[in-house]
């Protein structure tokens, strides 16, 4: 098991965002996490990548609201739930955040190099950059362009490429298709499949259930911070109630 989350709980003030969630991802898998808005999909990714703990620290220091984070996260045989976000990346768990979030003032190349911040070996960095350029030829053409001037689809490619530069063992991608035209979505999903075929384990959070169920090896359906179903796309779609109530299909 590459990633194992056990009994994860996240509460912001009184609001329960994640309620006793357990899931696991095996090496080489493409696993999806689907569910309605506000189900806690993004929060799950933020919790395992250390951002919830980071936020909790800020709130604590600024005497802001209380954030509760409980449960264990094991990655590659090591507990990572007590480790700060910037150390988690080093271990190979990389998050490509929601809304893409490129460094808008920097060039495409600078964004990618920021992703490779921890890769101190020049040769390896160069090699990874070549892989990213191979996956996204467009990023090579645009390497000197300011990231803020890219289109939404291009920014998404950049965000994925930047995460790829961190040399992930597990790549978590949060809602890559949001706000993109159908054709571009298709392209983004194709790229994600391609990365998966390169042997990189992927945990994908998405709204677009139809496409994701075809791509992913396994899926978790999340609702109100709880996992309510797990299985292959076919298995989940066979469940009439689940399909109508939670998947909107």
């Amino acid at each position: 098991m590459l990633l194992e989350i056990a009994h994860l709980n996240v509460r912001y003030e009184k609001a329960v965002l994640i309620n006793d969630l357990s899931l696991h991802v095996d090496e080489g898998e493409l696993v999806s996490l689907v569910g309605p808005n506000g189900a806690g999909k993004s929060t799950t990714l933020r919790a395992i990548s250390g951002l919830v703990a980071w936020e909790r620290e800020i709130k604590r220091r600024s005497a802001g609201g209380e954030i509760v984070l409980e449960g264990t996260v094991t990655f590659d045989g090591e507990r990572i739930d007590q480790i700060p976000a910037h150390e988690i990346v080093r271990r190979g768990l990389v998050l490509c955040p929601e809304r893409r979030r490129p460094f808008r003032e920097m060039t495409v190349l600078e964004n990618l190099m920021a992703g490779a911040y921890l890769l101190r070996d020049r040769q390896k960095c160069r090699g990874t950059l070549d892989k990213v350029y191979y996956l996204f030829p467009l990023l090579q053409q645009r390497s000197r362009q300011i990231a803020g001037t890219l289109s939404g689809g291009e920014q998404q490619m950049l965000a994925i490429g930047r995460a790829f530069m961190s040399d992930p063992k597990l790549l978590c991608i949060d809602e890559p298709s949001t706000g993109l035209a159908p054709l571009i979505r298709r392209e983004v999903f194709d790229k994600i499949s391609e990365i998966s075929r390169l042997g990189i384990t992927i945990l994908l959070v998405e709204q677009e259930v139809g496409v994701v169920f075809q791509m992913a090896h396994r899926n978790y359906v999340l609702s109100s911070g709880k996992i309510i179903a797990e299985g292959t796309g076919q298995q989940l779609l066979a469940d009439e109630v689940l399909r109508k109530t939670y998947l909107g299909l």
Partner: peptide, 24 residues
């Protein structure tokens, strides 16, 4: 420089900079 890149990243979006392994 690499340090400069980290400083600019942190200045623009410190959450994402954290995700790139930059020590705040």
């Amino acid at each position: 420089t690499r340090l400069g890149l980290a400083i600019r990243s942190m200045a623009e979006d410190r959450e994402v900079a954290n995700l790139m392994g930059m020590n705040e």
